[in-house]
Simulated assay, not measured.
Amino acid sequence: MTEPLYLERGAGYGPLLWGPAFAVVGALVELLVGDRPHWFMWAVVALGLLVLTSVWVYARRRFLTVRVTGEELWQGQQRQPIAAITDIPGATDNTDVVTPTGARVLGGGWSAPHKYQEVPLRLADGSVVVAWARDAEALRTALRTAMRHCDT
């Protein structure tokens, strides 16, 4: 696998600590109040929240990861060959690539994920698809770099 030019993970592993931290705080509050902590229940709460959060982190890392290599753009689980991309308009460019209504969104959703910016791409077949990233300009830069490497 080639080194990514751009990599944006859908989520980090930090949120996995939220549930156990909440359980520790709850047990400490019980201690401070003067009650005997319910250690078993706090352990169950920590484990339950850890499991729920791990499902959330796994889903975000699987479906919201954006990666650009020299050969492909990955949006979630979908791959788009760099060689098939012909135009990447910038935010200030005056190119004629406009995202048409109903354009296919890479990654398989109906629209770009919430809090992600859209980046329209013109493909070799003339169609326009929508890529997305939290930092649209960084994605454009990485795609342009990959396109230059692909042309040589």
Rank of each mutant, 00 (worst) to 15 (best):
D35Q: 06
D35S: 06
R36C: 05
H38G: 07
H38I: 08
W39H: 05
M41L: 08
V45T: 04
L47C: 08
L47P: 02
G48P: 07
G48M: 09
G48H: 07
L50R: 08
L50C: 09
L52A: 14
T53L: 12
S54G: 11
V55Y: 13
W56A: 12
V57I: 08
V57C: 02
Y58T: 10
Y58H: 13
Y58A: 11
R60K: 13
R61A: 05
F63D: 14
L64Q: 05
T65R: 04
V66F: 01
G70I: 02
E71R: 09
E72W: 11
L73W: 02
L73K: 02
W74C: 04
W74E: 08
Q75Y: 08
Q75R: 07
Q77L: 14
R79Q: 12
Q80A: 15
Q80I: 15
Q80C: 15
P81I: 14
A83V: 09
A83R: 11
A84P: 13
A84I: 15
T86D: 05
I88C: 01
P89V: 01
P89H: 02
G90F: 06
A91G: 04
T92A: 12
T92M: 13
T92C: 09
N94I: 12
T95Y: 04
D96N: 06
D96M: 06
V97L: 02
V97K: 01
V97M: 02
V98P: 03
V98D: 10
T101A: 15
G102Y: 12
R104G: 13
V105Q: 01
V105N: 01
V105E: 00
V105H: 01
G107A: 10
G107C: 03
G108N: 15
G108K: 15
G109T: 13
G109L: 15
